[in-house]
Design a protein around this nucleic acid. Structure first.
Lengths: 188, 188
DNA sequence: ACATGTTCGGAACGCATGTTCCGCTTCGGT
DNA sequence: ACCGAAGCGGAACATGCGTTCCGAACATGT
């Protein structure tokens, strides 16, 4: 993909890393509502400096979200490895919602057009994994058979809004909401 | 609340009604993404004319959504009247999601800060009704007791995102997703 | 038909936000 | 220590959208 060209000077490299790190923090708790001036200020640099390292706002978002997308993808490995597909599915859903709760930009980004590109790399992989987990969980008689893999994705994304609504008032309430949905998804 | 002053001239009254009607259509299928120019153009008038009848964009949104909020409130009456509170709850959830599916601005508006005022009139009433329905459904042993009325609201609002995600590709898919959540909410 | 005040249209304004530009600063080699 | 290039800051620019303004067009009472 669009290679991030390493700056030549040492201070610039340091700055780039620092911007990525601080931008992640800002995006994590302000979400996509954070504008370039706010991000730059939090990083202690001018907007011009941010633009020196990332050509557009979307590129910066993509750079920040790419790591999280990778971590998200990584969360599928143990889920797939679990012989109990239902448990794997639940673990994956928990990992996903946990990320959303911790990282507001991820929550916003997953349902915003501007950041879809950041998840291109993992979308296919995730679809494959979900398809397999759903299929196996149904074979194992744990997941109701009248839902598709897409339906499961939709339910988890929908719970993203539950995270949005409750995380400020009652952190972790999403676990209760996930329990309800999982109970609804369980085979009778 | 802020009285909508009836215009003096007949053509102006006609225009006002026409703007309200057409704006509703535009908002119904474009949601809050519709801007004033787009709304005015759809109504076949200039933006100035829209502003003659509604002081701000939010006022226009409120005027459009007020009717829907009233219809929403009205949907609680049969739900409350049903001796089977669980059935009432389901009917109310179906009515709510159906509205969201039909009316995109309502879907957007329910989770947007700018339009919260439009629902002020019904919020209290709805909270009361939901509280009663949830309480009765739990007493009747149909709704699991480890969820609050607020949790039920959150689940339904979360399904709003499911509507958002699927309505274009598969209209009505939200009924399937609602079934899952309701199964999860049912007492064991 | 005319006078008068109302309504209309849409160009222009204000503000927010992404992006670019350029003079000043700092790095790193000599 | 000096110099050229790389990097930096933040004012200025571009765009989009809510809102305002005002001359033109029109409805209404006489």
């Amino acid at each position: 993909m669009t290679a991030p060209p390493e700056p030549r000077r040492k201070d610039a490299r340091r700055n780039r890393a620092q911007i990525l790190g601080t931008a992640r923090e800002v995006l994590a708790d302000r979400g996509l509502a954070a504008d370039m001036r706010e991000i730059a200020a939090a990083c202690g640099v001018g907007v011009g400096t941010v633009y020196r390292h990332f050509p557009t706002r979307d590129a910066l978002l993509a750079a920040v979200l790419a790591d999280d997308a990778a971590a998200w993808t990584a969360a599928t490995t143990p889920a797939l490895a679990d012989p109990d597909a239902w448990r794997g599915l639940r673990a994956f859903a928990e990992a996903t919602l946990g990320m959303m709760a911790r990282h507001r930009a991820m929550l916003d980004g997953l349902s915003a057009a501007e950041t879809q590109a950041a998840f291109d790399a993992c979308r296919e992989h995730l679809a494959g994994v979900l398809g397999e987990l759903v299929g196996r969980a149904q074979e194992q008689g744990r997941l109701r058979v009248d839902v598709s893999a897409r339906d499961v994705v939709v339910q988890v994304m929908a719970l993203g809004r539950a995270v949005e609504m409750t995380e400020a008032d009652e952190p972790g309430a999403w676990r209760r909401h996930l329990t309800v949905v999982l109970d609804g998804l369980r085979a009778a």
